[in-house]
Design a binder for these strands. Sequence first.
RNA 1: GGGGGCGUGGUGCAGUUUGGAGUGCACGCCGGCCUGUCAAGCCGGAGGUCGCGGGUUCAAAUCCCGUCGUCCCCGCCA
Length: 605
Amino acid sequence: MSEDRLPRRSCGTLSASDAGDTHRVCGWVAHRRDHGGLVFIDLRDETGVIQVVADPVAAQVFEVAERVRHEWVLEITGTLDIRPEGTENQDLPTGEVELKASSLKVLAESETPPFVIDDRVEVDEALRLRYRYLDLRRPKMLAALRKRASAISAIRLAAEECGLLEVETPTLTRATPEGARDYMVPSRQHPGSAFALAQSPQLYKQLLMVAGIGGYYQITKCWRDEDLRADRQPEFTQLDIELPFAGVDDVLGVVEATVCSASQAIRGNAPDRPFPKMTWAEAMSRFGTDKPDLRIEGELKDLTSVFGGTEFRAFSAAISQGSRIVGLKSKGCPEGASRSWFDALIARATELGAKGLVWILVEPGGELRSPVAKFLSAAELEAIRDVLALQEGDIAMIVADAISVAREVLGRLRVELASDSTEAEREGAGEFAPFWVVDFPFAEWNENEGRLDPLHHPFCAPHPDDFEIISRGSDAIVEAGPESVRALAYDLVADGWELGSGSVRIHTRELQETVFEAIGIDPTEAEEKFGFLLEAFRYGAPPHAGFAIGIDRLIAVLQEEASIREVVAFPKTQTGSEPMTGAPAAIDGSQLASLGLSLKQSPRP
RNA sequence: GGGGGCGUGGUGCAGUUUGGAGUGCACGCCGGCCUGUCAAGCCGGAGGUCGCGGGUUCAAAUCCCGUCGUCCCCGCCA
């Protein structure tokens, strides 16, 4: 309005200490309450909401105030008053004061939005993504973006305090032969050739170690053309770290520093360091998964010894075939102890690959109820109660199967049953308690291909204690049992999420070639695919180790969101499309021509 | 590639099991009243291709087949 106008004040920052002065605010109409003779407007900007009062005494202001609608953009100047006694709003940070408008200018009108911009209104996610700019206008979403930014800023600071140098690596790179499918980028200058969008900076960061970088980090986008989940987007952000002359604990220390700084930024507190460690073997045996959710009560227990001399045929037969009997306690069942609930539980176990499932319910008074109770001796039942620490209302689930199957099935049920109950009922809900899973197996048997695959990637160093086995090749690994042959590889886990993984790397050509051989990559193939890395190792590569954290996941977990889409400004749907822009879109004919491409299949209309 | 959930005025739902007139609830929207509200309140009103296509039937939001979108999961994600 006036030429020498006041500086813009943020709506959410006005307080009693600003009262009595004239202020100028700009923002969106969050709500309007028209009392006929008095109009209240809640004006929202990125910092919060301030109540504006339009009084008929200021006729011009009042006339406009009666006309404005949701989401109109206004510039308002007025005096900040302490609210009349009894009209303060405790629920609003600015609830002690209100702006008495002396000037009200409409900067932009708005059509009625497709949904109300309010944290409390639930909207279909497809619609939110279609109008993401309106979705992001919701205070909760803006706060999520702000928390994300502050966490990333804190991470950079922590990384730099650890002496790391941020180095950018190419995102247009060469397709990696293994791992995820690549997003391909055809090149106009090289018809018939294409770049791949980087799945991770893995090889580049190792080359930076050879280059002599004292310690590297990068916060960067990575791309993987795989099917999506709540915790997976086709493009995601990774905190990538690599240290020269470093061992496992050096890396874990740096990662802990960055994770704690992110936690401090978002939650205002950080977990104790060092984070607890658990071996992969322990995670599998106690929880049936390599990313256990420790908030859930109940662990897997091996009950095989309990049934050494059992009369129960299903168990005795299983044991004689080398199967194990594994049990798991669950805290009650959500729908009471109905027969149909247990039937569904058994059906689910079968679906997950078990041959069957035995359940035992502890009834009020302590009696054990089970369809197979009559086949089990009193001593066996009491041993189950004892080993699983069963209490009234608990359910014991018992699976007799190959150890890997029994663990897999019970590990899944453990998580699925917990997600049926509410968050509040979970042990330790709300805590951020990350921990390390260390000593991952070096490789796993690929049933389909009939060969060993690296569990992490082919650049992980073997565990020194298992090096001898690996050096004798794939047959020796298979003979020893792939699960027992370890790599110096580790994951960071929290709340059942894999937040990141890393390893000590191989840094000599000789060992790298040995490892390639052990996992079935022959020298010709190795030369073609990773020749540049092997070549670099000829010129003095330092021992090095590193880690990569999924930033989207870390931030989602820190904000206790179930999906990373809640902490990504413009995420894609589960089918990898973007409802707002319509991406991906058909390729224009002239673009195809300039790339030297033709299509075999027309895109769907 | 596979399993499951959802799709009904602008939004969120109920209705679908057991076919019978587009029936209902809350919010939003439009109009009116209203000077202390704060997701204001009261009164009135408008607004529908029940995702789309096909089938069964005298009759389909409802049953069947197909398809699209979306969410969760399996496979996949070194």
